[in-house]
């Protein structure tokens, strides 16, 4: 008989992530493994749950970017412990190519969205910051991606998002690839104008939108 229920290990992991505590997350991950908890469950119901709660606190303006970044560090520390013990890789919910549009080097928001996509079960290809529109299109084509996710924090670079949509149409691959956009100056109206399929106001929302776009909500 387990001295502790599986659920209590999940709670320990989730709490350690929410509390931004890398060390405690690693300890909790090791404890869960020693007790025979399945690594996949520990990731999904422990670490991911913690990130989802952190995302919620972010939406409620309890947490801000520094807190969210520290939660994700804790989450990754736990992931490093648990990943080698995964029996089989859980089925991916789809592939997302993400990056910050050319001319902009602000990638804090994009990194948060990437983390939320990853914990949400997507395979993510991160092109980084200051990415030319053509590279998004080429990468999406080569990787047979389901979604291209574009971010910018600057009004001066918003046009590049429209360029990506245009390039997809010109390459006749627009139908197979959904485009979602976000970032400080982006509005739902702007997303619509450039012909994007989705808009998210923040990282937590981005996962929901992505799941809807791949028909997996």
């Amino acid at each position: 008989m387990m001295l502790k229920s599986k659920e209590s290990f999940f709670i320990d992991l989730s709490d350690a992530v929410v509390d931004m505590d890398e060390e405690r997350t690693v300890t909790a991950a090791n404890a869960a493994l020693e007790a025979g908890v399945d690594a996949y469950d520990a990731i999904q119901q422990g670490l991911s749950d913690g990130m989802a709660r952190a995302g919620q606190l972010f939406e409620e303006e309890e947490y801000f970017i520094p807190e969210l970044l520290m939660c994700s560090d804790a989450m990754y520390a736990g992931l490093d412990v648990l990943k080698p013990h995964l029996k089989q890789v859980g089925e991916s919910r789809g592939t997302i190519v993400i990056g910050v549009i050319e001319g902009d080097t602000h990638d804090i928001g994009k990194n948060m969205v990437r983390i939320m996509f990853e914990t949400g079960g997507f395979k993510v290809i991160d092109l980084g910051r200051d990415v030319p529109p053509q590279r998004f299109v080429d990468t999406a084509r080569e990787s047979k991606a389901d979604i291209i996710a574009l971010s910018t924090l600057m009004t001066t670079t918003m046009d590049g998002m429209g360029t990506v949509v245009k390039l997809l149409s010109e390459g006749n691959i627009r139908d197979g690839i959904k485009v979602m956009v976000g970032g400080g100056p982006i509005s739902p109206g702007f997303a619509k104008r450039i012909g994007a399929d989705g808009y998210a106001v923040n990282a937590a929302e981005a996962v929901k939108v992505a799941l809807e776009l791949v028909g997996n909500a």
Partner: peptide
């Protein structure tokens, strides 16, 4: 590095 910097404002 800005990501590190923001975390270190706390840590």
């Amino acid at each position: 590095d800005p990501m590190q910097f923001l975390k270190e404002l706390r840590k």
